[in-house]
Every structure is written in structure tokens, then in C-alpha cells.
Design a protein around this nucleic acid. Sequence first.
DNA 1: CCTTGACCTTCCAGCCGTTGGAAGCCTTAT
DNA 2: ATAAGGCTTCCAACGGCTGGAAGGTCAAGG
Lengths: 140, 140
Amino acid sequence: MTIGEAAKASGVNAKLIRYYESIGLIPEAGRTAAGYRVYSSNEVNVLRFVKRARTLGFSIERIQTLVGLWQDRSRSSAEVKRVALDHVAELEAKIAELRAMSDTLKHLAHACHGDERPDCPILRDLEEGGGCCHGVDCGH
Amino acid sequence: MTIGEAAKASGVNAKLIRYYESIGLIPEAGRTAAGYRVYSSNEVNVLRFVKRARTLGFSIERIQTLVGLWQDRSRSSAEVKRVALDHVAELEAKIAELRAMSDTLKHLAHACHGDERPDCPILRDLEEGGGCCHGVDCGH
DNA sequence: CCTTGACCTTCCAGCCGTTGGAAGCCTTAT
DNA sequence: ATAAGGCTTCCAACGGCTGGAAGGTCAAGG
């Protein structure tokens, strides 16, 4: 299997496969006499694992840990669960951050007439540093 | 006002101020005879505006637009609102993406015993590409 | 046999928004 | 005079890719 075929089979871009190899996420592939990388279905499985883990938002570093646990038959499921829950905690923190941004902006946009006039509570908020709704003159 | 003082006054790191100048987000600051950057309270206001906008997650590109609208007295609030709502849409899309990841992982982690045994539905999901819950043998 | 085109190789650069460090100049205080 | 602290520029790294250039290799067709 060449890198292109492995890419198709795994869903991971050929360039990305080389990148993953270069950073040590996956082991160095074997080579033909001409220097072409060669892949077996086993390596394709690892690539698929990596791809799925990326889809779930795991960092490369954590994926390295997960692949290690996956290969380790004497792993404990507790270790895997801990890695997953650490990641969930980070996701939830990020979601909360984005949620706060979005809600603030939706509120400001709601208060904005959105017509041809220049007056705009969104710009006022940016100007004043977000102190709008802590006072009394916000009007909502 | 030197760059360090402007940094304190605006809450934007001195290094970041130079970076913002280098990419054209803020205009080039004036200089003393010795080459030190000089800031007025006006420029500090711009920095504060930028900082608040970053806090709300706006990209540098959109902040450039927002600063332009802010300075433009003949702007329409509709333009500002559109920029804000475009950003809200992006935030919501990102939130939905992270939400899906987190929910999937929480579900998998819930199904994982988290003990010393190696068997783990999280690894099974990564191995199989997330097909677990579309079938019948998932067990939840 | 030669060409064409599709693949493969390496290396280098850029995206975003920062942050860090190195090397050197300027100012102020002691 | 000298030390400390600020300022200057430039270069590099983070994460996770993605693109391009320049060149080698392979299979099919004329």
C-alpha cells in the first residue's frame, strides 16, 4: 500500500500522514527500494484511530497517549477514561467561554436597531469595555 | 506615554501592541528622538477597544472592520450588527461542534467501567470509527 | 524507446494570535 | 561610572495543518 492508498483507506490526507510521522505520532513507515512509504492494514487502522480521535477533538499529545493505551493490552480502562474526561473538561471549559461570548453578543445585537443610524450599543460596549449591563442605563 | 505605560493603561501586552502595529491593526505609533513609541490616550482607547473585541472572540480581521466602523461617524448600525451576527453564527457553529464532541465522549466515558480491566468502550469507539450507537449491540 | 501524467519524495513557508528569547540601545538613579 | 530597567528589532515556537516548489519513480500509450 502506498501513502496515497493508505490515505484513501484511512481518510487521512497523505500530507497529514507524513506530518504525523514527522512529529512521531505514528511510527516511521517502511520503504520500497525507491524510497516510497509502504503501509499495511495495521498502520491504516492506527491512522483511522487517530482520525477518529481528532474528530472528537483530542490533541495530538493526548492521541499519542491513547494510541499507547490502545496498543497496551495490560492497560486499565481507568487510564483511558481519565484521558477522555480530562478532554471533556477542556471541551466544556471552551464551550462555556464561547457560550459567554455568544450570549453577550446576541444580547448586544438584540439591543442594536440595525438600521441606517450610526448609534450602536455593540460599539458602545466595545468602547466602554463591556460595563453596559452592570449599570442601570442599558435599557433592557 | 511609552509602550509599557500604554500596555498598563489598555491591558494589552507591550509585545502584542507591537504585533498589532506590525500587522496594521493599529496605525504606526509616533516616536521619540530615540525611537521609542509614543502613545496618547486616544491610541490607548483603540487598544482597549481591540482588547474587548478579542475578549468577545472577534478575529483580527473583523476587529479591523469594527474599528473602521467605530471611527466612521457615518456608519450604519446595520453594518456593525451584521459583523457581530456573523461572528455569533461562527461561535454557535463552533459551540455545536464542541458540544457534539463532548456529548459523545461523555456518553462513552459513562459506559466505561473505569477500573483496572483493559476492556474500554472509548477505545472501541476510536477503533471502529464511532459506529457504536448506530447499531444495536451498544448496550445503552 | 520515449513521453506523458500521476504519483511519490523532501524541504520550506504560511495560516492564527500570541509569547518567548536574544542582542543591543536609551534613560534614570545611585 | 555603572547597574537596572525599559525600549528597540528580529527570529522562533506553539498546534495542526495546508500549500507549493523542485525533483525522483512508475505505468500506460505512441
